[in-house]
Design a protein around this nucleic acid. Structure first.
Length: 475
DNA sequence: ATGTTC
């Protein structure tokens, strides 16, 4: 057995597991999570990532890990800027897919009597579902502006406030975006979709804070028991998908050109110093800016609707963070601080207290981390820790993580039964397509509280609060 | 995730 248990929640995948592994695998999980890992091929993928050139320390797997395109979802891998690589498969098809939480100044008792109308009004306002479009109309030059400026563009156009920006990662704008590396096809797909939620696991929830674990941090974040919040989970839509598709082809050519050998073609990549890497980074950051703008615009639309019902709602942004990104960040290795390229695919950046990238108001406690649960289950707010910074490149989990494939989930139950069950729990659900409801049944996912307990026990982030859904909008 | 198989 190549997996060595280090403590209750840490497992080391030995280099003997597979020929070509340059580093060990470090997996966070309890025994249930480790069992699931073996049966679905994720373990093999963790080992494959460990074979990539220039990988640093470990190939990491968070407790929500499961099989993905090339890299596992829930995987983290950092690469040296000197001899490392960048890979579209390590970011994922939905570039900068991520999540934000907005805080109302309303108690659940004020909102509950209006929840049906409120949810219906948001459902009408925010287009959702596969191929959804038409939230706002922009031309080619505005789209280029979005790709260059992210959420800053949205705020400039009145879709959001200046105060939002400091609570978005990278202040809402990735600086090395370069739209000239984004294909015409990607631009065409993205133009009509700005301000739309999309489909799959994307959602919009109205929630209530029903448990506080850390009073001090919760106070700093502005979280109170009974307070209503809004969570938005979506990404870069067809534009990001097309960028990934385009650059997988570029990287397959680059592998031949640079003589890179990988155990799985889906891990195709290019040296970080190459022109191909520069172009992917520019295109990926442009797609990420699209996603940041998208969440800012949707947030603004939700704010509009809430204010119509409740003039004092406010909807202050707690934080907006991506969980599908490669970032070039400073990390300490063997006592030396250096730039490294951290791929987080279905994993969340979680900066510790005092990190210079954090807005000043969060510096004393650390970065808010947002962990959505599966449909109808609780979500969590965590906070980044020093140990996470030192041990796993400031990373943590991103959600519940699938245990059933979309296809397998589709077979299990009809949508009406799922909706009825959620209704009995007092959760209002509105969806564009019933197929999505079946794909997203809670049984298709791990228990998010189990996942969060693992990262807390490991000390790579800490629980702050739990959010219970009142209403869910699905694509 | 995705104009859910250009």
């Amino acid at each position: 057995m190549a997996l060595k248990q280090l403590d209750h929640v840490r497992w080391l995948l030995d280099k003997d597991f597979k020929a070509g592994m340059r580093v060990t695998g470090l997996i966070y999980g309890d025994s249930y999570i480790i069992q699931n890992l073996e049966k679905e091929g994720a373990l093999e993928q963790i080992a494959n990532v460990a074979c990539l050139p220039g990988i640093l320390k470990h190939s990491y797997a968070m407790p929500d890990v499961h099989w993905g395109y090339g890299f596992p979802i829930g995987g983290v891998a950092a690469f040296s800027m000197d001899d490392g690589i960048i890979s579209p498969g390590g970011v994922g098809y939905d570039i900068s897919c991520g999540v934000r939480v907005m805080l109302t100044f309303l108690d659940q008792d004020e909102v509950k009597p209006h929840i049906d109308e409120l949810t219906a009004a948001i459902f009408t306002k925010v287009p959702c579902g596969v191929g959804s479009k038409g939230a706002i109309k922009i031309g080619e030059s505005d789209l280029l502006d979005v790709l260059a400026n992210g959420a800053l563009w949205a705020v400039k156009k009145g879709y959001g406030t200046k105060e939002d920006l400091e609570c978005i990662e990278e202040s809402g704008r990735l600086p090395h975006a370069n739209a000239s590396y984004v294909s015409k096809k990607a631009l065409e797909r993205g133009k009509p979709q700005l301000g739309t939620l999309g489909s799959g696991n994307h959602f919009l929830e109205i929630q209530v804070i029903d448990e506080i674990y850390d009073e001090n941090v919760a106070r700093r974040f502005g979280l109170n028991l009974g307070q209503v919040t809004v969570m938005i989970h979506c990404g870069s839509r067809g534009l990001g998908h097309q960028v990934c598709d385009d650059y997988i082809k570029v990287m397959l050519r680059a592998m031949t050109k640079y003589g890179i050998k990988v155990p799985d073609r889906q891990l195709c990549c290019a040296p970080l110093k190459s022109q191909e890497a520069r172009e992917y980074l520019g295109a990926m950051q442009a797609a990420a800016n699209y996603a940041l703008a998208n969440r800012e615009i949707i947030g603004h639309m939700v704010r509009d609707v809430f204010l119509r019902f409740f003039p004092k709602a406010e909807l202050k942004l707690l934080y907006d963070v991506s969980h599908n990104m490669a970032h070039i960040e400073k990390h300490e290795l063997d006592g030396v601080i250096m730039d490294v390229c951290v791929h987080r695919k279905g994993a969340t950046r979680a900066f510790p207290p005092d990190h210079p990238s954090l807005p000043e108001k969060y510096r004393p406690v650390g970065q808010p981390v947002i962990i959505p649960g599966s449909m109808g289950t609780e979500s969590y707010i965590l906070v980044g820790t020093k140990r996470g910074m030192e041990e796993c490149f400031a990373s943590t989990c991103h959600g519940a993580g699938r245990v059933l494939s979309r296809k397998a989930a589709m077979k299990s139950e009809d949508a009406d039964t799922v909706l009825k069950r959620l209704e009995q729990k007092g959760i209002k659900v509105m969806a564009d397509q019933m197929g999505t409801i079946r794909e997203e049944i809670p049984e298709a996912y791990k228990d998010v509280s189990r996942v969060v307990d693992v990262v807390e026990k490991a000390g790579i982030s800490r629980k702050v609060a739990r959010l219970r859904p009142l209403a869910v909008i699905k694509g």
